[in-house]
Nucleic acid binder design. Structure first.
Lengths: 102, 102
DNA sequence: GCGTCGCATAGAAGATTGTCAATATGTATT
DNA sequence: AATACATATTGACAATCTTCTATGCGACGC
């Protein structure tokens, strides 16, 4: 996965309001109006954050009539976890290249 | 863990150059000068990124004479993983509150 | 069709972040 | 102590991000 995409995924977790939104969604699907009641921003700002969360695929939106219901994407979360894993596991293979002579 | 701290941790993974740095460190400890050769930024910019990575505790620095050797912090990575886990696991407990009448 | 409601988009202001050049700090080496 | 080297800090600027107001758009009820 390229660096640009990785950055986009973890951007979901880089803003305090987005983290609050994710925490709210842990208890299940919620529509935007409900989220709006609980986090202290205007409606367009919420919409902006939801877009970032959806782009990161951490959250999915489901339209139903006038409403949009948001929920945590198990698939997206799995991908984020795998991404974090892949990014941070040490490569045991090959040479130990010494760096900067003593 | 409070939202501010969570955001600081995942900020480590929100910049393309920082992701490149982390990827480079997967193969083991590297000093700043070595990292500098491989990612296309000036020395102060690298230093800035290393500070963010260390603040997030994803990376640790080890000073040895003139040099600073950086490596991935297993402890910090573990914490980030746990944080991601805790942030994204659905709460099965209690009521299914309906949101927005049909 | 007309107004209302829920949400998205556009555009602008302010804050934060990434980057650089210049400089400072700390550590050898001579 | 004087110099050279590795890294950190400072200050400035540009880019990006968060937030707002204003507006647009689709869905529903009358």
């Amino acid at each position: 996965m390229d660096e640009r995409r990785v950055a986009a995924i973890f951007k979901a977790f880089c803003d305090e309001n987005r983290i609050r939104i994710i925490k709210l969604l842990r208890s299940g699907e919620k529509c935007a109006c409900k989220l709006l009641e609980e986090i202290n921003v205007t409606q367009p700002t919420l919409s902006h954050h939801m877009k970032i969360l959806c782009d990161a695929e951490i959250v999915v939106g489901r339209k139903e009539g006038k409403w949009t219901h948001y929920s945590i994407s198990e698939k997206g979360v799995k991908q984020a976890k795998e991404c974090l894993e892949q990014l941070t596991t040490l490569q045991v293979e090959h040479k130990i290249e010494s760096c900067c002579e003593k």
